[in-house]
Design a protein around this nucleic acid. Sequence first.
DNA 1: TATGAATGAGTATTCATTCAT
DNA 2: AATGAATGAATACTCATTCAT
Lengths: 210, 210, 210, 210
Amino acid sequence: MTPGRKAEATRQALLEAARIVIARDGFANARIADIARQAGKSVGVFYTYFDDKPALFAALLETFHADLVALTPPPPAYEEDTEAAVRSALAGFWATYRRYHPEMLGLLETGLADPDVLEVWRKMRQRGIRRFAFRIRRQQERGRCRGLDPELAASALHGMLEFTCFNWHSGRLDFPQGKVADERAIDTLYEIVARALELDGPADGVPTGA
Amino acid sequence: MTPGRKAEATRQALLEAARIVIARDGFANARIADIARQAGKSVGVFYTYFDDKPALFAALLETFHADLVALTPPPPAYEEDTEAAVRSALAGFWATYRRYHPEMLGLLETGLADPDVLEVWRKMRQRGIRRFAFRIRRQQERGRCRGLDPELAASALHGMLEFTCFNWHSGRLDFPQGKVADERAIDTLYEIVARALELDGPADGVPTGA
Amino acid sequence: MTPGRKAEATRQALLEAARIVIARDGFANARIADIARQAGKSVGVFYTYFDDKPALFAALLETFHADLVALTPPPPAYEEDTEAAVRSALAGFWATYRRYHPEMLGLLETGLADPDVLEVWRKMRQRGIRRFAFRIRRQQERGRCRGLDPELAASALHGMLEFTCFNWHSGRLDFPQGKVADERAIDTLYEIVARALELDGPADGVPTGA
Amino acid sequence: MTPGRKAEATRQALLEAARIVIARDGFANARIADIARQAGKSVGVFYTYFDDKPALFAALLETFHADLVALTPPPPAYEEDTEAAVRSALAGFWATYRRYHPEMLGLLETGLADPDVLEVWRKMRQRGIRRFAFRIRRQQERGRCRGLDPELAASALHGMLEFTCFNWHSGRLDFPQGKVADERAIDTLYEIVARALELDGPADGVPTGA
DNA sequence: TATGAATGAGTATTCATTCAT
DNA sequence: AATGAATGAATACTCATTCAT
C-alpha cells in the first residue's frame, strides 16, 4: 500500500552496505561501486536515493545524531549523579559508539576537512558537552570540582569518551588483539569520570589545590 | 662545502609547505601540486625527495615521533608525581600538539584506513600510554587509584590528551571562536588528570568505591 | 537479451582500435587516449575492460596465440612432408602474421624487456619450433638432414619465418616500396625451407659434409 | 696536447654505460639517469656529449654499422663460396652480433616505430642482404639455386641470421638456460645457409622443382 | 667540463556521476 | 525503480631536458 515500501528497503540496504564498507575500508577508500555491490544493487540506483557521496554520509549521520539525542535528554531531565545513573549513561555511550562505529570513522576521516560534516559533528558533541558541563556546575554548587572550568573540562571529558569508545571499538589502535570487553570498558570510563566529577568525593572537601 | 646543503633546504621547504597545505585543506585534499606551489617549486621536484604522498607523511611523522620521544623519557627517568612535574609534562604535550597539528590531522584522517600510518600512530601512543600506566601503578602501590585498570585507564587518559589538544588547537571543533588559551588549557587538563591519578588524594584513603 | 552483448562489443572495439594505433604508431607510442579515441570511446572506459596497458596487450596476444595453436596441430597430426603440405603450412603462417602484425610489433618492441610478454612469446615460438624439429628428426630417420642440430636449426628456421613474415608485412624495413606479394613471399620461404629440410633431396644422399 | 682527451674518455664511458644498461633493462627502460650513474657521471654531463637520447643511440649504431661494413666488403672483394669462406663470414656475424647485442635490442625495440632508427637499420641490413643476393646470383649462374628469388631469399636469410644471432645471444628467448655455444651456433647456421645456397649441391643438378 | 637540483610537459589511472535502456 | 556501460575531470607520477653553480 504505502508507496515506496520497496524503495525504502533499497535505501536502507544502501545505507547498511555503506556502513559495512566504511568499517572495512575506511571512509575515503569506500567507493560507490563497492557500496552498491555490497548492497547487491547497481551503481546507478545509488543516485536514485542520494544526491552524491556526501549526501549518503549526511544520511548516516542523521540517524547517529538522532540516537545520540535520544540518549542524552536535555538538562532538566538529567538523572541524579548516582553511580548507577552515570554508569548507565556511559553504557549508553559505549553501545551507541559501537553501533555507529562506521559513522565515527567517517567523522574522524573527513570532519576536519569538510565544513558540512564538521558542523554536524560539532552539534553532536555540543549535546554531550553541555551535559558534562551541567554536571560539573551542579557539583560546583555542592562545593566540589573546584578549579574545573566547566566548558573546557566538559569538552575534554567528552573527547575522552568519544575518542576512547571509538578507539576500543575499532580494535585497531590501542588494543588490536582482543577488543576491550564491555564491562571493563565501562568500569574504566566510569572510574575516570567519577574521579573527575568527584562523584564520591567529600561533601565539602578541598580535593585539589586552589 | 656540504654537498646537499641546498637539497636539504628544498626537502625542508617541501615538508613545511606540506604542513601548511594540510592544515589549510586537510590531508586528503592536499594535492602534490599545491604543496609544490606552496614551496615555490615545481611538481617534479617533489618526487626527487619523496617516493609518493604516503612517504611524505611518513617523513612528517618521523619528526613528530622524535619530538614525542624526547618529551617522554622512559619510566625509570620519570619525575615525581608532583603538581609541577605533571603540569610540565602536560605543557610539553600541549605545545607539541600545537606544533604538529598538521600531522595529527593526517593521523586522524588516514590512520584508521592505512595500516602503515596506523602502525606509526600506535607506536607514538604507546609511549604516552606506558607513562600513564606507570604513574597509575605507582599510585596503586601507595594505596591510591584503586579500581583503575592501569592499561585501559592510561589508554583513555592519553586519548583525552591527544584528542583534546588536537581539538582545541584546531580551532574548528569545540571552540571555533577564539582558540583556547595555553594556561586555561593546561589548567583544565591538569585538573582532570590530577583527579584521575589522585595526585592530591588522601595517602591511603578509599576515594572510590570498589 | 544476452547480458553484456554491448559490453563485449565495446571490448572488441577497443582491441581493434588498439591494433590500428599500434600498427600506426608502434606499441610504445600507443597512448591509451589514442586507442580510446580511435574506438570512439572515452578514456575511462578503457579501464572498464582492461586493468592497464599490459593487460590490453595480453588480451591481444591471447587471440594471436590461439590462432597459432589452431594453425599448428600437435606432432601426431602432422601432415606429410609433401610440397603441398609444407606450402600450405607456410601460407598459414604468412596469413597469420599479416593478420597479427600489430601483435608482432608489440612482441618485438616489448618482449625482450618485459618478462610477462617474453613468456608468452616463448610459448608461441616453442610450438613452431617443436614442429620444425619434428620434421628435421623425421628427415634424419630417412637419412637426410645429416649434420643439422634439430633444436637449433628449428629455432633458426622459425626465427627466419617469424622475422621475415613480420618484416615483409610491415612494409617498412626491407621492401618499403610495394609490399611483397603473397605468392612470391610463400614461394621464397618454401624454397629456403625445402632446401634446409632437404624435402626433395636424394633418398640417402650426403648433402652436406659431416 | 690533443684537446678533449679526457672528454673523449667521458663520452666513451657514457656509451659503454648505455650498452650495459640497455642490455640489462631493455632500451625503453634505460633511463638517462641510470646510464649516467652506471658511468659514474652526473646526469647533466650526458648532454655535453649527446643532444638527446636518440642521439646517443645513433652514436651506438654508428660503431655497430662501421663494424658491419668492415665485416662485409663490397661484392667485388668477396671470397669464394668455399665452406671455409662462408663459415668465416658467419663466424664474423655471430661475433659481431654478440658484441653489439645492446644495439640490436634497441633496433628491435625502437626501429619499427622511429623513422630515423629505421633508416639506419635498413642500411645496415642492405649490406648483408646485397651480399646474400650476390652469392645467390652467382650460384644461379652456375646452374644452382634455381627458383630462388635473389632479393627476397637474401632478405629472408639475412633476417634469419640477424634474428637468430640476437635470439641466441640474448639468452632469454629460445634457449634461456645455457646460451648456445659458439661452435654449435655457427655450425647450425652454416648447415642451413649451405643448403639454401646449395654450396655442396651437384654442379648442374636440379635440386628443387621449378 | 662537470654537477645534480629543478623543471614541466606528457601519460596512466581513478572514480564520482550521468544516462540510455 | 533498476541497470551498468560510458563519461571525463581530477590527480599522481615519470623522466628527458635545462641551467645555475
